[in-house]
C-alpha cells in the first residue's frame, strides 16, 4: 500500500493494522539444533502452547512467512542457506535469534566451522539467551516482539521502513 510505505498512515489505522499483524504471525522455524527441540516443545506440546499467542507454525514455504526463529548452531556451511531463505521472505519480516549459538556462537565460540552469531548474516530483532532457552523464554520473546510490532509507526517511522524492507536502526 502506498500509504504505509510513504509513512502517511493515520494513527488509528496504524494501531489497528499493528494489532492485527501482531496476533497473526506466521512463523517459519529454522530449527537447527537443540534449541529446535525447545521450540518444538513450545509449539507442539500442549503445555507451552504458543499458538494461543497467535503464532502459527509451519508455513508451506518461507515466501509465506512473517517471522523466522533461528534456533541452533549456525555453521559456515549453513550460513548461505540462511541468507537465501531470509531473502525469500516478503517484507515486513522479523527475526528472532534463539539460543546462545545463534546469538553469538555460544559454547562453540572458538570453533573453526561455526558462524559466531547469525547477526553476521541477517538482521535480528530479538535475541533469546539460554542454552537452550526454556519454552517460556521463547514465548516472552514473542510477546516482546508483539509489543514492538504494536508500537511501530506510532511516533516513529519504523512501520514505513519495515514495509519497504529497509534496515531499522536502534538508537
Amino acid at each position: 500500500m502506498g500509504l504505509i510505505e510513504s509513512g502517511r498512515m493515520p494513527k488509528p489505522l496504524t494501531h489497528l493494522l499493528n494489532y492485527s499483524r501482531k496476533y497473526s504471525l506466521w512463523m517459519f522455524q529454522w530449527g537447527l539444533a537443540c534449541c529446535a527441540i525447545e521450540m518444538g516443545a513450545a509449539l507442539a506440546s500442549p503445555r507451552y502452547d504458543m499458538m494461543r499467542l497467535g503464532v502459527i507454525p509451519f508455513p508451506a514455504s518461507p515466501r509465506q512467512a512473517d517471522l523466522v526463529v533461528v534456533s541452533g548452531t549456525v555453521t559456515d556451511k549453513m550460513a548461505p542457506a540462511i541468507r537465501r531463505l531470509y531473502e525469500q521472505m516478503p517484507d515486513p519480516k522479523y527475526v528472532i535469534s534463539m539460543g546462545s549459538c545463534a546469538n553469538c556462537g555460544g559454547p562453540y565460540w572458538d570453533s573453526y566451522s561455526v558462524t559466531k552469531g547469525i547477526d553476521q548474516v541477517i538482521p535480528v530483532d530479538i535475541y533469546v539467551p539460554g542454552c537452550p532457552p526454556r519454552p517460556e523464554a521463547l514465548m516472552e520473546a514473542i510477546v516482546m516482539l508483539q509489543e514492538r510490532i504494536q508500537n511501530e509507526g506510532i511516533g516513529n517511522d519504523q512501520l514505513a521502513k519495515r514495509w519497504r524492507g529497509e534496515p531499522i536502526t536502534v538508537a
Binding site: 541452533g72 555453521t75 556451511k77 559454547p107 570453533s111 573453526y112 566451522s113
Partner: peptide
Amino acid sequence: GYMHRGYEKLAEFRTYPQVTTLINR
C-alpha cells in the same frame, strides 16, 4: 556437515569438566 561444530578440536582446548559441559550437546 551443516552442523559440524568441531567437537574433537574443541575438546583439545578445554579441561575435563569443560569438555563434559560441551559433549552433552
